[in-house]
Design a binder for these strands. Structure first.
Lengths: 223, 223
DNA sequence: AAAAATCCTTGACAAAAATCAAAAACTAAA
DNA sequence: TTTAGTTTTTGATTTTTGTCAAGGATTTTT
């Protein structure tokens, strides 16, 4: 059980005393999930929440005709998911599936609640985590309402870019279908948006790496 | 100072002991705001959060060209707003303005944090409140991605309807412009969506009251 | 390396929604 | 009540996005 190092890497439990971590470990368990495996379904009874140990997890909703909309992709070890369901909901409000072979930590709802009651400082960390998620979601709705696909793509690239020897690059880690779902559109529309940016020589693309050729003009599309 | 009854009506402080309420009152203050008055602007430093005593408040973002998108309308006394900014943000992430003459309770950030640390049970209530907001926002993004304006309108009516002597009615409390912004669209498009539902005799409208003539068919548009 | 499967792109078209402009309906003020 | 103001509706048009279908490209499997 090498669960402790993973726990101390979650931002809710980071900075806890070793003794407190031991307590948390008592109501937590490590679970391996294979690529494509579902961790929980929309509507499943929610008696736990999860932290990512390593891998890639998607949290998504399905529309009546089966289109999926990705609400959240968890890929940073230590990030929590499904916490929203814990406090006042009986069932999970979305589906959750591993995109690659992953390991997740399952943290029991009841265990966590009694732990919080005994360790009030932890609750402030949890509240902060929640408020971050809220702002993330507010950002998403704002993007959806104010901006078209081109500009949502531009923002996304600018917010997730890295710099590699002077070049501004964005490395896509999922499929384009996934990226499209994340941006609230479909692969065809994403493809056209990308084609547009490439035709204007604002970005270039090779494999999973996009290079931003003209950051300035990309920014004008982003807002 | 008739602040105590208002406090005990907020869902974070509901159920608190009189003594605890007194404590909360010490770092809270009642503020009158006139219609149109701004409570805080996007970017203002966030050293407090708010609860509605009575009135109507909008929390909204402005796009670069001045279009407003309403993220949240607070009209239920006791509802919190601007809490997201408290825990890990220095500034408010949106604007906030009174839609009618209102009274709000300003709750100091520092005061609240020390209070939580001494009263861990309250944090569970706060966490529950947060998770509700998260689900609300998830619901909004989902609606925006999956559904067109007609169906967002239909859902909205169905979720906010009341029953008055056998009739299923929806009473609009803001302007249509406000409703349009809330639904993530513009007044013209809302107007057309309404005209459509009226032409099909699914709803009728008189003043600010819409009567649902055919709940069944309205529901088919909602999903 | 060939075959199969999946993913991505492109085109033609249809639908949804935004924009612009103007008229109509409603409200509030003089 | 008349006027002035705002809000709402309607029409014509354009832009954006989705749908469907087909062809390429890429990856995976055998």
């Amino acid at each position: 059980m090498e669960i402790l190092p993973h726990l101390s890497n979650t931002f809710v439990f980071r900075g806890l005393q070793p003794l407190q971590l031991e307590q948390v470990a008592q109501f937590s368990s490590l679970k391996k999930v294979r690529k494509g495996e579902t961790i929980f379904y929309d509507g499943d009874s929610a008696d736990a929440f999860y932290a990512l140990a390593h891998g890639r997890i998607k949290v998504y909703k399905l529309s009546v005709n089966g289109d999926e909309h990705i609400l959240h992709i968890i890929q940073k070890p230590g990030d929590l998911f499904a916490e929203a369901a814990i406090y006042d909901l009986e069932t999970f409000p979305a589906n959750c599936q591993a995109l690659v072979d992953s390991e997740v930590i399952r943290i029991s709802k009841d265990g966590f609640i009694s732990f919080i009651l005994e360790n009030p400082k932890v609750s402030l960390l949890a509240l902060a985590a929640y408020s971050r998620r809220i702002r993330e979601l507010v950002k998403i709705t704002e993007e959806l309402v104010f901006h078209d696909v081109k500009s949502r793509l531009a923002s996304h690239i600018l917010e997730n870019r890295m710099t590699k020897n002077g070049q501004m690059i964005y490395v896509r880690n999922g499929s384009k279908k996934e990226l499209a779902a994340y941006l609230g559109t479909i692969p065809e529309t994403l493809s056209r948006a990308l084609a547009f940016l490439k035709s204007k020589e604002i970005i270039s693309e090779r494999k999973r790496t996009m290079t931003v050729l003209d950051p300035c003009r990309l920014r004008t599309f982003a807002d």
